[in-house]
Amino acid sequence: MKVLSVVGARPQFVKLAPIAWQLARRGHEHLIVHTGQHYDHLLSQSFFDELSLPPPDVNLEAGSGGQAEQTSRILAALDPVLARERPDWVLTYGDTNSTLAGTLAAAARELPIAHLEAGLRSFDRTMPEERNRIVADHLAALLLAPTTVAMDNLAAEGLTTRSLLVGDLMVDTLRVISDQWAAPGGERPSPSFTGHRGRYLLATIHRQATTDDPDRLGAVVAALAACPKHVRLLVHPRLAARARQFGIALSGGSLRASDPLPYRSMIAALAGADGLITDSGGLQKEALVLGVPCSTLRAETEWPETLQGGWNVLVTDPGELPTAVARPRPAGEPPTPFGDGEAAVRIIDVLASRAHDAPHAQYTIGCGRAAAAEVRT
Rank of each mutant, 00 (worst) to 15 (best):
S5Q: 04
R10N: 05
P11T: 01
Q12W: 01
Q12N: 13
V14G: 02
A17D: 00
I19M: 12
Q22P: 03
R25Y: 00
G27I: 05
H30W: 09
T35D: 00
T35P: 04
H41K: 12
Q45W: 14
S46V: 11
D49G: 07
L51N: 06
P55A: 15
A62K: 04
S72Y: 08
L75Y: 01
A77S: 15
D79Y: 03
V81F: 02
L82N: 04
A83G: 13
D88E: 13
L104G: 08
A106Q: 11
A106N: 10
A108S: 15
P112G: 03
P112F: 07
I113K: 10
A114T: 08
H115G: 12
R125P: 11
R133P: 08
V135Y: 00
D137N: 14
H138C: 11
L139V: 00
L139M: 14
L142S: 07
L142E: 12
A145L: 11
P146N: 10
T148V: 14
R162G: 02
V166N: 03
G167A: 03
D168N: 15
L169N: 05
L169D: 05
V171L: 15
T173E: 15
R175V: 13
D179T: 12
Q180D: 14
Q180N: 10
A183Y: 08
P189R: 10
S190H: 09
S190C: 09
T194M: 06
Y200A: 01
Y200K: 02
A203E: 01
I205W: 03
R207S: 05
Q208S: 14
D213S: 13
P214I: 02
A222G: 10
L224W: 08
A225I: 08
V231T: 10
R232I: 06
V235K: 04
V235T: 07
A241K: 13
A243T: 08
Q245V: 07
I248Q: 08
A249H: 12
L250T: 12
L250G: 01
G252Q: 05
G253Y: 13
S254I: 04
S258H: 15
P260A: 01
P262Q: 07
L270V: 11
A271W: 04
A271K: 04
T278S: 12
S280E: 07
G281T: 02
G282Q: 07
Q284L: 04
V292R: 03
P293S: 08
P293F: 03
L297E: 01
L297N: 02
R298A: 05
W303C: 00
P304D: 06
E305Q: 06
W311V: 12
N312A: 10
V313A: 11
L314W: 02
P318Q: 04
L321C: 03
L321N: 05
L321F: 02
A324K: 03
R329M: 08
P334C: 11
P337W: 10
F338G: 00
L351H: 05
P359Y: 12
A361R: 15
Q362R: 15
I365K: 07
G366E: 15
A372L: 15
A372G: 15
A373Q: 14
T377F: 15
